[in-house]
Simulated assay, not measured.
Amino acid sequence: MPEGDTVWQAAKRLHEALAGKVLTRSDLRVPKFATADLTGRTVLDVTARGKHLLTRIEGGLTLHSHLRMDGSWKVFADGQRWVGGPAHQIRAILGNADRTAVGYRLPVLELLRTTEEIRAVGHLGPDLLGPDWNPDQALANLLADPARPLGEALLDQRNLAGIGNVYKCELCFLLGVTPWLPVGALPADRAAALPALAKKLLETNRDRLIRTTTGRRGQDLFVYGRAPRPCLRCQTSVRLADQGDGSRERPTYWCPGCQAGPAPSPAASRRTPRRTTN
């Protein structure tokens, strides 16, 4: 699933291509909204809210989309060949005289009244890249369930919005604890530093093509995608296991030398690492 910085970048591209311009083409390829016609309306703005995209359109309408694992929005110039997947994977087309935005494999696509956006994003916690960011509230949300593993709490968008699996792993490394450490066991000084650290990581990367948490070219991430290679700090082999609440397991990377706290046994965590260039 894309991280908050990736969705922020998508919103920026869509806003630059569509905002302030009249739609000359509109095609929503989902059954419930297939007959909706947005042509002749002006796109007011496109904004990210956590991992959600909100395209606000003249007449009090909002097109809400979510990329989940495989979705994407591509922007093409007039006459440019569309490259993003086969035609049957297209779920939305929004075009004007200069640019066309094409949504591929969008698992969530709905047209709603702008006044009802809360139905789509009202459950989200403070947005790390949004104007509603509130570090104190984000920390309070995380600490509300002290027995919950830190990694699961970070991925819960109701606590704070924008962290995905990559930042979960990298944040836990930078905090020096495993993703399985109960939130309530996080040392007070590290808990206090967590919101600012998370915001710094996403803000640093929101304008980057290649995400980095290390500042090292060619070694962009500390642990994510690096198993079983040596840790960049202590040379211990980075380990990989699944973590989840039962509804979805996510590949989770950590360094047993640098990160304190509970973790799966070596036998339980043995799995085939995914290919990566980081």
Rank of each mutant, 00 (worst) to 15 (best):
N159R: 14
V223H: 05
E16H: 12
L186V: 11
P228I: 06
K51H: 05
T114M: 05
Q243A: 11
Q243D: 02
K12H: 10
R216F: 12
S26C: 10
K200W: 09
R68T: 10
T42Q: 15
A17R: 09
E203Y: 14
G246K: 00
A10W: 02
G130Q: 03
V75R: 12
R239I: 00
R29G: 02
P273A: 06
L240F: 15
S237Y: 05
V83K: 14
R275Q: 12
G84A: 05
T272R: 15
T277Y: 10
R99E: 11
L174K: 03
G225I: 07
A198V: 02
L63T: 03
T236S: 12
R99F: 11
A147H: 09
E110F: 06
G261A: 02
T272W: 09
I210P: 01
R119Y: 11
G225P: 04
I163M: 08
T6N: 10
G59K: 00
C172K: 04
R248N: 08
G261P: 01
P2Y: 07
D5K: 03
A267H: 03
D245V: 00
G4A: 08
R190F: 07
V46S: 06
L186N: 09
V238E: 04
A34L: 03
Y253P: 03
P126K: 07
D70W: 11
L150I: 07
R113H: 09
C172W: 04
R81S: 14
L18M: 13
D127Q: 08
T55C: 14
A191D: 02
G162V: 12
Q243C: 08
F173M: 10
N134P: 13
Q259F: 13
I210R: 14
K199H: 13
T276S: 15
T276K: 10
G246A: 00
N159S: 11
L44G: 04
L63H: 06
G162F: 12
P256H: 00
R56I: 05
R226H: 02
R250D: 03
L38M: 03
A19H: 05
R270S: 13
A34C: 04
L201E: 14
T214D: 04
L221V: 11
